[in-house]
Design a binder for these strands. Sequence first.
RNA 1: GCCCAGGUGGCGGAACGGUAGACGCGAUAGACUCAAAAUCUAUUGAUGGCAACAUCAUGAGAGUUCAAGUCUCUCCCUGGGCACCA
Length: 974
Amino acid sequence: MKTYDHKKIENKWQKDWDKKRIYRTLDSSQKPKYYVLDMFPYLSGEGLHVGHPKGYIATDVISRMKRMQGANVMHPMGFDAFGLPAENYALKTKTNPAVSIPKNVIRFKKQLEILGFDYDWSREVNTTDPKFYKWTQWIFLKLLEKGLAYESYEPINWCPSCKTGLANEDVEDGKCERCGTVVEQKPMRQWVLRITDYAERLLKDLDSLDWPLSIKESQKNWIGKSEGSEIEFPVKNLKDKIKVFTTRADTIFGATYVVLAPEHELINKLKKQISNWGEVEKYIKLVKTKTNIERTAEEKTKTGVLLKGVKAINPANNEEIPVWIADYVLASYGTGAVMAVPAHDERDFEFAKKYNLPIKDVVIPIRIDEKNPPQPGKETVFRNIILAVIKNPKTGKYLVLETKKPRWTTFVIGGIEGNEDSETAARREIYEETGYKNLKLVRILGGPIHSEFYAGHKGENRIAHNTCMYFELENEEHDSLAPEEAEKHEVAWIDFKDITRDRMSHSELDIVLARLNTNNDCFTDDGILINSGKFNEMTSKEARKKITEFVGGKMVTKYKLRDWVFSRQRYWGEPIPVLHDGDKIVPIKEKDLPVILPRVKSYEPTGTGESPLANIPSWVNVKVGKGKNAKIMKRETNTMPQWAGSSWYYLRYMDPKNDKALVDKKKEKYWNQVDFYVGGAEHATRHLIYARFWHKFLYDIGVVSTLEPFKKLQSVGLIIGEDGRKMSKRFGNIVNPDDIVKTYGADTLRLYEMFMGPFDQTAVWNTDSIIGSRRFLEKVWKIGMKITTQKQINSSRFTLKGSDTTKNLSVSASFQTLLHKTIKKVSEDIESMSFNTAVSAMMVLVNEMLARQSPDDGGEKSEISKNDFKMFLQILSPFAPHITEELWNLLGERQSINKSTWPKWDEKKIIEEEIKIAVQVNGKVRAEIMISRDMQEDEVKKIALNNKNIITWIENKTTKRIIYVPGRIVNIVV
RNA sequence: GCCCAGGUGGCGGAACGGUAGACGCGAUAGACUCAAAAUCUAUUGAUGGCAACAUCAUGAGAGUUCAAGUCUCUCCCUGGGCACCA
């Protein structure tokens, strides 16, 4: 018997597939198309580790299965290499990227090839190839033409180490995503893409995508839509107005001051009025020196300066309110100014506490008593009431009243009478209802609560504004109750844990308890308005519109998403295809594309805000026109960011060699969307948002016919090192796939990576565990060898006559069941990306096959038929294409196994005649019984009740109920 | 702080509300071997018992249900996204 020599087999078949070009994809077919795509690798120069191929293996499994299931599959691969990481690596190693990238491509391709992927290499793309980036530049020209690319001089994120401007997406925690340096804000000329024009569509169309929830959620967060109002606060005695943005126009009556961002343009205009200008100027300077990180790091301590001599008018009630500047208000969001409502905004609350600014409640929570709701047709009475929570600090218990009729447990509650303030009312009620005299008011528990209920004893509906207070006993001295009070209720002391909604009759109990616990009186939810003039009693939602209208504001939508800073002051990128004629921008003509990135000796970034390309006069200066009209224009020297090429590369695979168009219309229509896209979740708010933006733009200009590029997306979980850290040279924990392939074979590696755990979860690499996958393949090989060498045993043995027929039949039949169950499971699991359970199911099947072949079994009675084994090879082949191809070939097949038809499972064979079910007594499993599938319920129950074990459990007890779930379980309740 | 995933043996992980721990690694014992490796066979959640079996176990606590790892609520922890976004 030949041993399993993975090197020989894998080498042989990889050559054969290549020679026969079996994975070439045609651009039209009778078959349904299926476009499955990997996020193409980025060649920074760093080596490959075992984590990288995980996603590629998965798409390979899927594409192989889909092909066998009759689809015209496109599974292409290419390379991305422009941008910062590749250039930084080149600088570090002092090799020109233009030289090193092609070498990396070759090396990388080799590493992919030994894993046996089914890529159609005739479609390979490379973003640094002028034939490719011609079209990247073409898209830029179109964006420019449509007004979606523009020059800006706004301050942007600048990485002092990479010496380039960065997009918001390239900044993580205030640091450069590449090198970890803290970014600065630097005003400079830059190219920007108007992605914000697409914000709404990018947000809305997420709904149509079959993407992981977490990625959709990230994008939603990143786009950050909020709907609110823009309202103007006039400056007293001046024509100027402060425009604020707020989502809570309903709280405007509680706006007790206004805050401007320190960068706000109005501050300079008001210079004359500001009597403390020196202080103000100092503060603004201080803020400027802080980076964004520092500004947010000092989280809880807000700072600001009052603009003395300036007052704003609250347009809702015409009150004069102070104006502050503070760096907790951002210039870049909204209007750079806010109306501060400390009672209903945490930040304003904190600021107001620190600087002693007035806090005014204008929105209060609503509770409608669900146990005792208002009755229709009854009169409604309004009351201001108090609720007193009273604790005895000595015992830790709380005072409640237990009323006799109706039987309620309540805190001390009562109406506020006449001109009483709420504390006086509370103390009076406490004395009247409990007799206690000496209490300390610890605090008022926030603003009032609006509650609605039916007051049964009075036969009327009540609306109450309930002010809650927290008292502690100073001592236990108390008078006895007046007889008429004692008749109504008893006083009781209970533990805190017993204060529950079940026991207490207050529908607002949750709020009371929350306020008792947190010591935070800032109510930020929606509710009902008070202290708001004619808007009192209105709900927040309604009031937002009405008040905005009332104060002459307008409803607007804002996004956190910023326009995409698209230029880099670096060498290694696509040149931005425009000329500068003085201040005028002259786009390069389409026919003159591509603008080729010149080869240079020195490509160190300059740090001046210009790219190193600016140092090549022969390239920068371009003569335009002829004769007298000729003039010299200057080329744009900034280049495009890393993300440009990857924003559209998936379209180029459809038509990689076209030099007339980005993609041929017919081919684009045929391939349509990417059906399935697999890659890392780290691209959620970069690549995946940029690509969607460009795709939508290309749709708008008629280049593509679909609204979204990637129909279904799946993220790959990382593979981390054995030490639990990310694989990195720094930690010396990198495992190289080449080594694993050498020792165990590509099929083993593929199988292992699919078996490691749920595909989308992070998995820890464990070289010890690979042996399991290898052993599995060894078993497959062993069975295969036996079958190829044994005399043909065909399925006719099922009809053998003789004494052992019945027995054989039952054994074989159950093997058939297992085989078909496995086919079903593997087919479904691949579809749902549950590769680990698919592999496990095949392991079970192989163990069973092996048991049937074991010598002490007599061999003959249960051997596996050639046909059955071939079906198994077919379902294994997407995972382990080489070994299955070899065995397939040895079994006499001439065509590649990947050209064969995916086996179908037979539902009839999956149904088992005899099944084992559990019998429970009171939900605990006490026995197992064998029943036949079509047995009647009564019969099953009878068997269950007569089971020896069961009898001991139900003896001397009465059976209340018997539940039978067909084919699953019997539960006897006694 | 807000939003999204998760928390199951020594480890990776299985489990349409229906027998928790499939499958794999590791470990223990045995077979083969001069020996080792490889391979094969058996055992392997914990506790008690010779055993049949029993009790306890899915981050903690409550609840719904004939039945909860799975559903509901509260809390704790881990990972990820956003973050003075008004």
